[in-house]
Structure formats: C-alpha cells, structure tokens
Write a protein that binds this DNA or RNA. Structure first.
Length: 293
DNA sequence: ACCCAGGGTCGTC
DNA sequence: GACGACCCTGGG
C-alpha cells in the first residue's frame, strides 16, 4: 500500500455530495473540510473539490489513477445522458437540475451484494453502521494518516462469521441471509466471476436471485451499482412515492403495482431507467430531509 | 412511554 | 398474488 495523489481538472457531473449522498454507496464520510474519505475495495481514498480541480489522495496497491477512473467511471459522458433524460419531461429535467453532480459509481460486486442485503427494510444510517461493524470485525486493517480503516471483508474473511456472530454485529434478521449468501458464493454455487462475464441482464438477475436476501429490488441495485446495467429500475418506497405523485396519482401509493411502475419506467426512460431512478430517488429523498431541518 | 418507518424479502395461505 | 413477520434504531 503506497500513498498516492491523483488530480484531474474539474469535470461535468461531479459533485461530492451528490455522488456520495444519493444512496448508492455506504462507506464514504464527510470530513470537516468538506472533502470525503472512503474505503473502496482495497484502497482508502480522500476526495477534495478545489476551485479548478479534483484531488484524490489515498493509499492503494494499484495505481490510484486507474482505481479512480474505474470507480468513478470518469469516461462516462454524463452531459449526453442528462440531455437525453431531460428531454423526457419537466420532472426529469428538474430532478436532474437538483442532482446535477450525480455519477453512478462502479462498485465491487461482492461488497454491493452484502451491502444491499443489509439495506432491506432498513435506514441508511443503520446500514452504514452495520457495514462498518462487519468491516471492522472481519476486514483487513489499514492505517493511514494516523487513522485506522477497515477494508470490506473478502468472501473468505466473511465466511468466518457464524449466524450468531453476524447477529451480534447488529444485522438483525438479515444475519441468516448474509451467512447463506456468503456460503453460496464461497462454494461457487453462485459464481461471481461468471456473473461478471454474462452478457444478458436477465441471466444475471436470475443468478443474483438465487442468493438469500436478494429479491428483485436488491438485484436491480446490485446490477446498477456494480455491473453498469443502467436499464434496470430498482423500485423502493421512495421511487414508488415519487412515480405515483408525478404520473399515476393513486390515493394509495402502496397499491400501485411494481409491474405497472416497471412498464412505465421502461416506456419513459428506456435504457437509462437506472440513472433516471437515481435522480428521482435523490430528489425526493433530499426534499424530505430538507423539510425536516 | 408508545408508535412509526426505514433503498424488502421470505414463508405461508 | 396478497399478507404478516422480521431486528433494530432514530425520531415524533
């Protein structure tokens, strides 16, 4: 692990708050100087936005520029994506204006699977807390700048945890799901390397659904956030809420069927449904957080 | 003190 | 396909 710095000129669609607070990731934390520090795969990185450049500092075995370009998907042309989506309707336009700095990260598949199993019927502060606890207990320790960080455990590392161990870390009823899923992956009953090489989204989803604790919503999140499948449309309480308010106007939003929402999303957002979902989710959820202040 | 909701999934009917 | 249960935490 060597300390490295990597700088790039400011680019379009890159705002730290939007990227890290839009709900796609759980291991980035705000620092007093408004930079963010996070643990990704096998690196610890701090990102700081300056006037004309973005500075990445961190320790990593691999070259930091390669890690950063891949993780932040820097070659993706968001101005084009936004232009496409903005044309669809005024709501899309407004939500994009609100979350203009959003960028879908390219996260590690294994970590993403466990993280979103934990997300089920849970809130973001507690999800972050549980992932941190699991990493601290089973992940590799990394010291940097006088602080201690913990990488997300590898499959082998996490397979040392019993159901009870996981329960003790605060996972709640998700303990068995994490345990079972870890073993399904370790035994290669579900082979992550194979999944990464699959072309067809449907095939990938079918494989992911074999994992305990992975239903349609979690599978979609995994595909969107770690496999670059931008055509999926994860439906959670927030997205159902905002879609109902904007397009459907049902008295009871919970009675709007997932199938109808999927169809609507496909019609409107097509192959960019996942990215549209992320703008909508962030827009609606931040609005609520703002109101509570 | 009590109730509710939170990036759902699973087992059962 | 609908329905309730489910750990636990934070906020009203």
């Amino acid at each position: 692990m060597k300390e490295q710095t990597y700088k790039i000129a400011k680019i379009d669609s890159f705002k730290l708050k939007d990227i890290f607070e839009c709900g796609q990731c759980f291991r980035w934390n705000l620092e007093p100087d408004n930079s963010y520090t996070g643990v990704i795969k096998d690196a610890v990185i701090n990102v700081k936005e300056l006037k004309n450049e973005i500075v990445f500092t961190g320790i990593s075995d691999k070259n930091l520029d390669i890690v950063v370009n891949d993780y932040f998907d820097l070659s993706q042309d968001y101005s084009k994506i936004k232009k496409e989506l903005s044309k669809i309707d005024e709501y899309m336009e407004e939500s994009i204006k609100f979350g203009e700095g959003i960028r879908i990260l390219n996260q590690d598949l294994w970590e993403c699977i466990i993280s979103f199993i934990i997300s089920a019927n849970n809130n973001i502060p507690r999800i972050k807390k549980i992932i941190e606890a699991i990493s601290k207990e089973y992940g590799t320790e990394v010291k940097w700048k006088g602080k201690v960080f913990y990488l997300f455990p590898t499959i082998d590392q996490l397979s040392n945890a019993s159901v009870q161990d996981l329960r003790n870390l605060g996972t709640g009823f998700r303990d068995k799901r994490i345990y079972n899923t870890t073993n399904l992956i370790k035994s290669k009953n579900v082979d992550l390397d194979k999944i990464k090489n699959l072309e067809d989204s449907e095939l990938i989803k079918n494989e992911l659904l074999k994992l305990d604790g992975v239903g349609p919503k979690v599978a979609d999140c995994i595909m969107l956030f770690s496999l670059k499948r931008y055509d999926v449309f994860p439906i959670d309480v927030w997205v159902r809420r905002v879609m109902n308010d904007l397009y459907i106007h049902s008295e009871k939003e919970e009675s709007v069927s997932k199938n109808d929402l999927q169809k609507l999303a496909k019609e409107k957002y097509k192959s960019l449904s996942g990215i549209a979902q992320q703008y909508l989710f962030y827009w609606r959820r931040e609005e609520k957080i703002e109101k509570e202040k």
